[in-house]
Design a binder for these strands. Structure first.
Lengths: 339, 339
DNA sequence: CTGAAAGCGCTAACAT
DNA sequence: ATGTTAGCGCTTTCAG
């Protein structure tokens, strides 16, 4: 607090070199003799030197900050994604900023403004709004790579898309193969890509069978409780024989409703969860779920951002699609009759 | 990307003032005529001026960054706390950094190092390790206010403590008042303050009754599943009539076990949750829980940090204790016999 | 109340 | 391979 800060000048003096050399040594830049570099590092350690991030950022025009804007932090996939990205980027000397917006467009705008002011080197975004003109403008004005995560944002950017349609079709096909016909969807629709595509694919898969879902439960958000809705539907006549349920709070209130009705799976009803988590894995019996390969996800995002930061000249765009895997566990059973 | 950045020089020129005046105007510093200030702001807006955070940080020696180091992000209390703090501090122009360490001391050290290098203006910490010498050294060396959240760190700092002892006593008293004697604790012990105090208080409360808990379940972490343990204990003879269960994953696997054993509360067993969340509130029936007043928590932390940043001369330390409130819902029932 | 100028600590360009 | 130096954009004295 009181003592003068140690600057690179001090380190250079102590190591008996110039500041330029000291800087190069500390940054592992080429063109420094191994011996010199060691001497500088040694001096730095002895003095307890800590580089000043602001000065470096000012001069090098790189904040070494990467931002994440996610609409839904309660989605464990995104929470874990942040964790992994943070780890990965920390290895490379970057600090990761996180902003959860709960889908509020106002907060999304504010976040983007902050990201711009702070001169972030790159951002990865999964906003709740895909068409807000102001948001799109800010995204396009952002100086630096933008990575879009599973959103249909009409901007030029790298992106990674989840194949919700294949996922839902896999789930429906699996259930149909087991003899199910009355399948209850319990996942939110919303305005963004995931919900839209899931419902579209679900409807299409059913239409292919010449069927349709007479009843749907569409939670307002992925974290809305649906105890009451599920209870009502499952108490009525012509009860569905299977359900496809979104993870997290929707799933946990569904399980609660099932327990209440003394309905158990796979005997009384079959269940597939969208998204894999402790809730599905550790449940007894374990729940069949659509799983996203988080490691693959992290690799794509983390590396692409790093590549772009290092080589701003890259002008191609990537847009790979990641498939969910249907992890079959014990929550679905065969249905002999044409239930 | 291509166009030259707009600096405060450009703004000053356009407004017909000097850079000094422009800076003062933009920062609402005293000693600028209202008219001049407006002119500058107008010019800034017209040009789309965005101040450069790095330059400002370098010159003013303040990064306007505040960091949070939490051992457990899966604890919804901390996740929400971060959200609220971020919001509150954003209003004042600060950006909040988050690091979840999962209790790994190595990550905690690395985080603190990053926080120091980046010149954060303040930090709030709840590490998993309270005695790691290296960590303590770094904490003491940190230049700027440190706020300790519910940890017994032997350092000079502002802190906020949760009254786990009163909370557990309240819970036990409530259950005892309902006639319960055999109470099963299901919460982790760990090395940090919360677990230690909870177990201490639980044991003491039982000792006061001349009793003791013959069986305990101590999850390895607050997020460990305990289905098996709970199932075993509740299947045995002399089954407990009540349980006190830690929130999150521990709670959800406990509920799962209960459903499996066809045990329902409050009839077959009574249950109190430590920590309030969607899981307790939305459950049917709703679960009696120990609730922490998050708003009070946020106010204390956010404001104290802000005060200290603004007035580094403050030399007193605060260390208030926040009580949990026992929110009585429908998960506990009376026990006529001396169960 | 405003202008001029110094300089925060660092990296990068240029010189040797 | 290393030294020298300019200057990133801003805030903050110090003059006026």
């Amino acid at each position: 607090m009181s003592q003068k800060n140690i600057t690179i000048r001090d380190v250079a003096r102590r190591a008996g070199v110039s500041v330029g050399t000291a800087s190069r040594a500390m940054n592992s830049a080429p063109g420094v003799m191994a011996k010199t570099r060691e001497a500088v590092r040694e001096a730095a350690k002895e003095l307890g030197y800590q580089p000043n991030a602001a000065a470096r950022a000012l001069r090098s025009r790189s904040s070494r900050l990467i931002g994440c804007l996610f609409s839904d932090l309660e989605n464990p996939l995104f929470a874990r994604l942040f964790n992994s990205l943070q780890d990965r980027w920390a290895e490379e000397g970057f600090v990761t900023l996180l902003s959860g917006t709960s889908g509020k467009v106002e907060r999304e705008r504010r976040t983007l403004e902050t990201f711009a002011e702070r001169g972030l080197d790159a951002i990865v975004v999964a906003p709740g709004h895909e068409r807000d003109p102001e948001l799109l403008r800010m995204l396009e004005a952002f100086e630096g790579p933008v990575f879009v995560l599973d959103r249909d944002l009409p901007i030029e950017a790298d992106r990674l898309l989840f194949d919700h349609e294949a996922a839902l079709r896999d789930a429906v096909d699996y259930l149909v193969g087991l003899g199910h016909r009355r399948i209850l969807p319990v996942f939110s629709h919303g305005q963004a890509r995931p919900g839209v595509l899931r419902h579209k694919a679900f409807d299409a898969a059913l239409a292919d069978l010449g069927a349709s879902a007479p009843i749907k439960i569409e939670p307002a958000t992925p974290n809305s409780p649906v105890f009451q809705e599920v209870t009502e539907v499952l108490s009525g006549g012509d009860r569905p024989t299977a359900m496809i349920v979104q993870g997290t709070q929707v799933l946990s209130s569904t399980l609660n409703a099932l327990a209440h009705l003394r309905l158990s799976f796979p005997d009384d009803i079959s269940l597939i969860a969208i998204g894999d988590s402790a809730l599905t894995v550790d449940h007894v019996p374990p729940i069949t779920a659509l799983r996203m390969d988080r490691d693959a996800l992290v690799d794509v995002v983390a590396n692409r951002i790093l590549d772009r930061i290092r080589n701003p000249a890259i002008c191609d765009r990537i847009a790979p699609t990641l498939r969910y895997e249907l992890v079959v566990r014990a929550s679905c059973g065969a249905r002999g009759d044409a239930g």
